[in-house]
Every structure is written in structure tokens, then in C-alpha cells.
Design a protein around this nucleic acid. Structure first.
Length: 359
DNA sequence: CAAAGAATTTTGTACACTCG
DNA sequence: CGAGTGTACAAAATTCTTTG
């Protein structure tokens, strides 16, 4: 019995759907088809735990090779199964579930597991034909499904805490305890307001972990500062979308860039950051700047369309990332942030960065 | 003492509950 | 309903333990 969650089933769905469509559509910043630009698919590569398999498209037939024999399956079969699978995924309510009706077909085309083997980072690799350049690039993708709940782009952890120094006031033990025990709906926000009301100001010191901050500096030497501004704004304003937060920060221009000629410093740097996160940067691992084999995302939309974003089309990819992400508040108890604490006679406060896709 | 395997901890993801 | 929050489950990483 093969079981998986919506995201995992979506990977198989994407494979079927793409083979059925025979072409790959590009997405724009609003997750709609970018008209007038499609890539005909030449073949799709998928690694299973018992080897790699190739699905190449020849007219109305899919040729499956990998082990000794070569299988031929009509395209229409993939179309049918894709449709069935989409409905099955959509109507399911369980956390993990199986779809027995589709298992025989999966076996017959050499799909034995849902997740492509864990050693391979790419979920799926596609060779397309690019009419503009007359080349046949091989593109790796990881698959993001909108059939389940929105996933995170950057996960929270102790690693993604930003440490602020509270200056301008000295709070008594009692005051600290009172503020830390604020337990309202938006407790982090309310604690910040309280501190500010008493005259405290927040000055960014550093990120909690050195590796994260060095990774950021590698991308852009001012990123820790810029992100600290954005994180602080998130916790002290009603904005959460990255676009809004970046615009707000750009207006305030806390780093005093020369904005006379309207250079979009903040937007550019944040896009860089998002791209690196999307393509392999992890807060807890030393980042070399080398993108992993997945050069982009395939998005499985609610209506079943599959759109692609790839570093190969950098501008669309960046716009998509900036326009479809927001900050959100992770569990403060789990990651240890949002409380005033004292160290060397000084007061500090941690805020956490987590980035999630909007839906 | 190194390699392999087992156990434990950490990190990543999905989702359900709650409250305005 | 949607944002905020905690938590369940899963995978990965790390540490500990055993064995040849």
C-alpha cells in the first residue's frame, strides 16, 4: 500500500499531468500561465529507489526506459490517470492516505514510491525544447502543491532568531515579568508595544547563530541589517506580505542608500535572498552559494494546472517568490523568542524569521 | 579501533484548534 | 473566515553502542 500526504501525491500527479500535456507552462508573478511561452517536453527523468527512469514523449506515446525492457503507453492514459488522481487528492480529508485505484498503473510505469529517493534532491527533472535558443536544457524542479496547506519557504528555528538590544530604558524585574506574561492573541506584538511605550528602543545586534548570519552576508553584506528591519516591521505593523514589508522598508530607507535615482536596493537584495533560500540555502548549513540540482519549482495549482518557475527564467522566478510569500509567526515557545531577557546588565529581545507561501 | 547499527535529538512540514 | 499558535508526524542528523 502506497501512502502519502497531499504534497507527496501531488508529485506523482505532476508527472502524469506533464506527460499528458506534453508541454511545460511558465508562470507569471500571479501564478497564472504566462501566455505565449511554452516549452515542449522532450522527456522527464525520475529517480526511483531501484534506478532511474526516463519517460520520453514520441507523438502520442510515452516511452519508458530504465530497466531492460522499454514500455510504451499512450498519452491518453496519463491524461486519464492525472484527472483521476487530482480528484482523489482533492476530496481526501486524511493527513496521509492511499489511492489503491492508481497503484496498479503506477507499478506498470515503474513508480514504486511517492517521494523520489531521498538521496536525490530534485523531485523531477525535465528536458524541454527552448524555441528561442534552439537548445534543450535539462531543468530540475521541486514540486510545490497548492492542493494542501501552504508550505514554508524558510523554516523557523533557533537558527532564524534575530537578537535586538533594548536601549533607552531600564526595566525593573517586575516590569519585565509583567511584559513577558502578556498572553494576548498577538502577544509578541503587544510586548513590543509595551516596551516602546516605556521608552525602549530596539537595536539590532546579530542573529542568534553565526552560520545564518554569515550565509546572509555571503548573499549580501547588508542582509542581516535589512532582514532585521523587515522582521521588526512584521512584528510591529499590520503588514505581513513580503512585498508590503519590502516597500515599507524601502520608504524608510534605514540603511541610507542613495535613493535619488530610485534604485530598488531593498527589493533587489531581498529577491536575491529569496532565490537563494528557494534554491538551497539553509539557515543552519554553511552556504556556498551553489544552487542545488533543483533549479526551480513546479506549482500544482488548485485547478490542476502545473506551472513552472525556474532560475532559467530568473525574473519570473524572483517576482513569483517576492509576490507570493509572507512572514509568519512560528511557535515562540518552541524557538525561544519574544521574551525580554537580561545578559551582562543589558536587556535583549529575540524575534524570529519564518517565511511562508501565501495561497 | 573502526565500521555498522541503534537510539536519540533536531529540523522540516502539515494541519488542527482557537479566537476575534 | 483567516490569522496566530501549538503540535503531531516524518525525515534527517547526530550521538551512542555494539561488534568484528
Amino acid at each position: 500500500m502506497i501512502t502519502g500526504n497531499k504534497g507527496e501525491w501531488s508529485e506523482i500527479y505532476a508527472l502524469f499531468k506533464l506527460l499528458g500535456d506534453k508541454q511545460l507552462f511558465l508562470g507569471n508573478k500571479d501564478i497564472e500561465k504566462l501566455e505565449g511561452l511554452v516549452y515542449p517536453i522532450i522527456k522527464i527523468l525520475r529517480s526511483e529507489n531501484n534506478g532511474n527512469f526516463e519517460y520520453s514523449i514520441q507523438d502520442e506515446i510515452i516511452l519508458i526506459s530504465g530497466n531492460e525492457e522499454i514500455l510504451k503507453i499512450p498519452i491518453s492514459e496519463f491524461k486519464d490517470k492525472a484527472l483521476f488522481l487530482l480528484n482523489a487528492i482533492k476530496k481526501n480529508k486524511e493527513r496521509t492516505f492511499s489511492i489503491p485505484e492508481i497503484e496498479d498503473f503506477m507499478q506498470s510505469i515503474n513508480c514504486f514510491s511517492l517521494k523520489a529517493s531521498s538521496s536525490a534532491k530534485t523531485d523531477i527533472t525535465i528536458v524541454v525544447h527552448d524555441q528561442r535558443t534552439n537548445q534543450q536544457p535539462t531543468l530540475g524542479f521541486s514540486i510545490k502543491s497548492q492542493l494542501g496547506s501552504p508550505s514554508t519557504l524558510l523554516n523557523a528555528g533557533k537558527t532564524t532568531n534575530f537578537i535586538f538590544n533594548i536601549v533607552g530604558i531600564n526595566l525593573t524585574e517586575n516590569e519585565i515579568r509583567d511584559i513577558n506574561s502578556i498572553a494576548s492573541r498577538s502577544k509578541i506584538m503587544d510586548r513590543i508595544v509595551q516596551i516602546q511605550n516605556k521608552g525602549g528602543q530596539f537595536v539590532f545586534v546579530k542573529t542568534e547563530r553565526k552560520i545564518f548570519s554569515n550565509n546572509l552576508v555571503l548573499i549580501d553584506s547588508l542582509l542581516p541589517e535589512i532582514l532585521s528591519q523587515i522582521v521588526f516591521d512584521f512584528y510591529s505593523s499590520e503588514f505581513s506580505n513580503l512585498t508590503d514589508l519590502v516597500n515599507k522598508t524601502a520608504d524608510k530607507n534605514p540603511l541610507n542608500f542613495d535613493i535619488e535615482n530610485e534604485h530598488k536596493f531593498y527589493e533587489y537584495k531581498i529577491k536575491r535572498f529569496l532565490t537563494d533560500v528557494a534554491l538551497g540555502m539553509m539557515p543552519s548549513k554553511v552556504w556556498t552559494g551553489k544552487y542545488d540540482a533543483t533549479g526551480g519549482y513546479l506549482i500544482v495549482k488548485e485547478n490542476g494546472d502545473v506551472l513552472c518557475y525556474h532560475i532559467y527564467n530568473r525574473n519570473e522566478f524572483e517576482d513569483y517568490l517576492l509576490n507570493n510569500t509572507k512572514l509568519d509567526t512560528a511557535s515562540s515557545s518552541r524557538h525561544g523568542f519574544g521574551e525580554i531577557y537580561e545578559e551582562n546588565e543589558e536587556l535583549y529581545f529575540k524575534l524570529n524569521l519564518q517565511i511562508r507561501f501565501t495561497k
